[in-house]
């Protein structure tokens, strides 16, 4: 096929390159303090402890508009000892709030899955509050790539 001059010089429409942006590159992350404030408001005076939470998310998001995350908290989930709430935050989004799961002893397990929007590579944070008021926290970094061309 021979290209004519007009075709040679035409600019391609649509999004470009090997590299399709999943989400807008121009979004201003929330101030770090906004994330901290949300955690503080959730946890109150309780100390933030490590452990008990497993946070599953893809290493690299397939699509920043819909990133699956699963939170699982170790707990007997009985009437006297259960996970009451898990708050999920994303510290690189314009607003850090994502979702708060509300569990009950009838949940059987403190496990929940949803799909979230991540504007850029950032930490997903899960903060779990137990029925006795103790609070646990876990983080996972999720990479939002502009799209490679591997293979």
């Amino acid at each position: 096929m021979e290209l004519n001059r007009r075709e040679i010089l035409a600019l391609s429409g649509g999004s470009i390159a090997c590299f399709a942006l999943g989400v807008s590159a121009v979004s201003t992350p929330a101030l770090a303090s906004a994330t901290d404030e949300r955690i503080k408001a959730f946890a109150g005076d309780a100390e933030l402890r490590e452990g008990r939470i497993s946070l599953t998310a893809p290493e690299i998001a397939e699509n920043g508009n819909t990133v699956p995350i699963e939170v699982k908290v170790e707990s007997p989930m009985t009437k006297d000892d259960y996970v009451s709430e898990v708050m999920v935050l994303a510290d690189g989004n314009p607003m850090p709030g994502v979702i708060t799961f509300l569990f009950s002893p009838m949940s059987g397990e403190a496990t929940a899955t949803t799909r979230i929007r991540l504007a850029t590579t950032q930490n997903v944070i899960a903060v779990a509050k137990m029925s006795n008021g103790s609070v646990f926290m876990e983080k996972k970094n999720v990479k939002v790539t502009i799209g490679g061309c591997g293979g």
Binding site: S12, G13, G14, S15, I16, A17, C18, F19, A20
Partner: peptide, 8 residues
Amino acid sequence: ASVAEATE
């Protein structure tokens, strides 16, 4: 080899 749909 753009991964974007409808690349011209």
